[in-house]
Amino acid sequence: MNITILKYIFFELLRSRFVISYAVFLAAISAGVAYFSNDELKTSLTLLNVVLFIVPLVSLIFGSIHFYDSEEFIEFLLTQPISRNTVFRAEFLALASSLSIAAVAGLIPALILNGISSTFIFLLFISASLSFIFTGLAFLSSSMNSEKVRGIGLSIIIWLLMSVLFDLIVVLLIVVFSNYPLERFIIIVTALNPIDLGRILILLKTDASAMMGFTGASFKDFFGSTAGMIASAFSLVMWALIPYLFAIRTFRRKNF
């Protein structure tokens, strides 16, 4: 694997104004939250909401913008003896990992102020996973649309769909079918959405899980079990992998 390009793009992104301001922005929020709540658990819960909202949005939109902005350079690179797969993989890995690093770095102030805990480590892990997943989705929507406006528009729609509409539909289904046993259905459905999965995995680790009562207990049984852990990890990996594979497939057929 040729890592010249990956190395270059990665460092280029790390010192880019956008990635730095993203990290600083998150750092300001996490420092603020940690300072005012002064309690590791409360900080984790508040930051969880911030992470679930911001990380997918930023990864999707910045991912798309970056993809379009890099198009000319990508075209230039492809005139060199290097395969499309290598270039695409380099772009994806560089962007996803620099966004992950920015997200994790942005949460570090809370870690310093409130101390380390397994919940917080988990939060860092979720932030990094969501960065990878939504960068992949951004690349998919961008490689499918040659027009920048449409690509970014599609990214925003993907975000709305996954962080808002999906949940609304699930709530609606739960209410409509409340007479039926729904636990299994809900577990499957939430595992299908990485944002929900991240939220539930963290909630179950905090004392908010006590509020989930008997319903929560069955979720906890599942997600706490080895099978549940494997299923969650599998779902997250698939979410990172499948959009990436579709995107690379489109990219390989693209005409510049």
Binding site: L52, V164, V170, V171, V175, S178, T190, D196
Partner: peptide
């Protein structure tokens, strides 16, 4: 209120959708 009707919807605790609702 939703939670009263369908306790399973607790799974959406702290989701953006719930805040919007």
């Amino acid at each position: 209120v939703i939670l009263e009707k369908s306790p399973e919807s607790i799974i959406m605790l702290r989701s953006v959708a719930v805040d919007i609702l």
